[in-house]
Design a protein around this nucleic acid. Structure first.
Lengths: 253, 253
DNA sequence: CGCAATATTGAGCGAGTTCAAGGTGCGTGG
DNA sequence: CCACGCACCTTGAACTCGCTCAATATTGCG
C-alpha cells in the first residue's frame, strides 16, 4: 500500500527478486546481460483494472509480470468476451500475438501489479544475425499457438452448430493458405475425431452436419463438404451461439 | 496416388513446391540455407495411422508437414483421449512440447503423408551463440503454450466440478512455482472471470465451490481458498468427469 | 459379396443454463 | 463510526441442449 518509487532504473534486473525465474536466467556473458537489460523497461506498479494493451494495438512489446496478476480477454465482434488466460508473477505476456503486427487480445490487471516491458524490436535485434531463421520459426510457433487458442475459443460459449461451422471455416482458411479450393473441402478426419476435437458426441456432429445441410449452408457427401454459404457460416460461427442455423440464414442470406 | 521415390535428398528443399510456405522462407544467406538444410531430413511418405511420436517419447525433432494431414491426441491417464489439433500441409508439428524433454502429445497421420524432420539439436545450434536467450525465451513461450492447451483440455469432457478443481490445482502449481503457499490460495479474479475462463455460468462456479466445500475438499471464504484435500481434487480433476465430487472423496480421501 | 468400421437417426434423461430474487463484503462519505 | 450504495456472490426453480443408449444405414476394404 505504501507509495512506490516513480522511476526504476533498468539496472534493477540484477537486484530483482524474481531474477532466477526471469528470462535471462543462467546467463554468464556480462555483455549479453547488459544488452538484454537495455531492452527491458521496469516501471512502477500500475493500478488494478489498467490495460497493458487491447485488441488491435500495434504489438510493440512483450511483458514480464513481476507482481500481481492479470487476465487475457478475447472478445468476438458481438462483444461477447472470454477470459482466455490468467497471468501470475514470472509469466510472460504477449507471446500469443507473436505472429501478428497487432495484439490479438486484451490484457487487464486484476490488482495493482508491476510489469517489465520488453521491446520486441530490441529482443529481435538481440537475437543476433540469424533473425531470419528466428522470424520464420517464431511465425510458425505463433501460428500453432493461434490454432490452439482458436480451438479453445471454439469450444466456449458457442452452440454445437456454431462450433462445427467454425471448424469448417478454419479448415477452409488453412486450405486456402496452401492454395486449395475454398468451396469444396475434403475432411481427412473421422466424425469421431471431429467430435473429440469439438468436445461433443459423434452423434451431435452428425446432427450438426444434418442441420447445416437442411439450411443449405453446406452440402455433405461423406467426408466431402461443399460450402454453399460461407457468409452464413461465419455469421453462425461468430454468433452468440444461442441461435440455430436456421435463424442465421435469414440474416446472412 | 502414384508411388513416390523411396529416398529424398536433403537438397530437395530448393525444389520443394512448399518452399515459399516453409520455415526458411526469404532467406538470402546461402551458407545459412545450407546449414539449415543439414538439420532437415526429408523422407518418403508414411502410411495412414502411423505415429510421428507418442506421449513420453524423448523430444528429438520438430516436423514440417509436406503433404497429407495429421491429428494430435492428448490422453489422460484414464485413457480418455482428446484430439487437440489437426495439421495440414505447411504446419509445424511438435512445438507445443518445446519446453519439455518429452513430447506432451501423440501425433498420428490421418492419411498417407510426407513430413520433413528437423532435429531440435541442430536447430538450436543453428541459432548461434545466443542460445541462452533463445532457450529462456522458448521456455517461456512453451509455458504459455502449455497453459493455453491446459485451459482447452480443462473445458473438454470434464464436469463443472472437475474443471473448477483443475483450475484450482493449476493456480496452486503456479503459486508453488513462485514460492507461495500451496495450501492457502487467494484468487485475484472474480467468479465471473473464472466462469468465463471455464466456459460456464457464474452461478455454476458458485455451486461448484459449494459442492467442493460440502465434500471437505476446500474451504471457501470469498476469494480465499484453502485446499483441504489436494489428492481428492486431483482425482476429481483427472476423473472422467461423470462423477460428482462426493463420489471421488471416498476413493482419494 | 460380406464383414467391420463408420455414420445417421430416434427417444429419454440430466447437467448446466437462464431468469429472478436475495445475501454478502467493502469502500465512500456523512 | 455507521449507513449507504454498488459490485460481487449465492441460492432457487424451470427449461433446454447435448449426451447416452440403442437400432439402423452406409461406407470402405479384403
Amino acid at each position: 500500500m505504501s507509495s512506490q518509487p516513480t522511476s526504476i532504473s533498468t539496472e534493477q534486473c540484477e537486484a530483482c527478486h524474481l531474477r532466477p525465474l526471469c528470462l535471462p536466467d543462467h546467463l554468464r556473458d556480462a555483455d549479453l546481460i547488459r544488452r538484454l537489460q537495455r531492452a527491458v523497461t521496469s516501471s512502477p506498479p500500475r493500478p488494478r483494472g489498467s490495460l497493458l494493451y487491447t485488441v488491435g494495438d500495434r504489438r510493440h512489446s512483450f511483458f514480464f509480470l513481476r507482481s500481481g496478476s492479470a487476465k487475457a480477454i478475447v472478445s468476438d465482434e458481438q462483444g461477447t468476451a472470454c477470459v482466455t488466460s490468467f497471468f501470475f508473477p514470472t509469466d510472460i505476456i504477449g507471446v500469443s500475438s507473436l505472429e501478428s503486427p497487432v495484439y490479438q487480445e486484451s490484457v487487464e490487471l486484476l490488482e495493482r501489479s508491476a510489469v517489465c516491458e520488453i521491446k520486441a524490436s530490441a529482443l529481435e535485434e538481440l537475437c543476433g544475425g540469424h533473425g531470419e531463421v528466428l522470424h520464420g520459426l517464431f511465425a510458425k510457433i505463433a501460428g500453432s499457438f493461434e490454432l490452439e487458442r482458436g480451438a479453445r475459443l471454439r469450444n466456449n460459449h458457442a452452440s454445437s452448430d456454431a462450433r462445427i461451422a467454425d471448424l469448417l471455416l478454419e479448415i477452409r482458411r488453412r486450405m486456402q493458405a496452401i492454395g486449395r479450393s475454398t468451396e469444396q473441402i475434403v475432411l481427412p478426419m473421422s466424425r469421431y475425431d471431429i467430435a473429440s476435437h469439438l468436445c461433443m458426441a459423434p452423434e451431435t456432429v452428425s446432427r450438426g452436419f444434418g442441420r447445416l445441410k437442411d439450411d443449405h449452408l453446406i452440402e455433405v457427401r461423406g467426408k466431402n463438404i461443399r460450402l454453399r454459404n460461407p457468409a452464413a457460416l461465419m455469421k453462425l460461427a461468430q454468433g452468440d451461439g444461442n441461435r440455430r442455423a436456421s435463424q442465421v440464414v435469414r440474416e446472412a442470406g
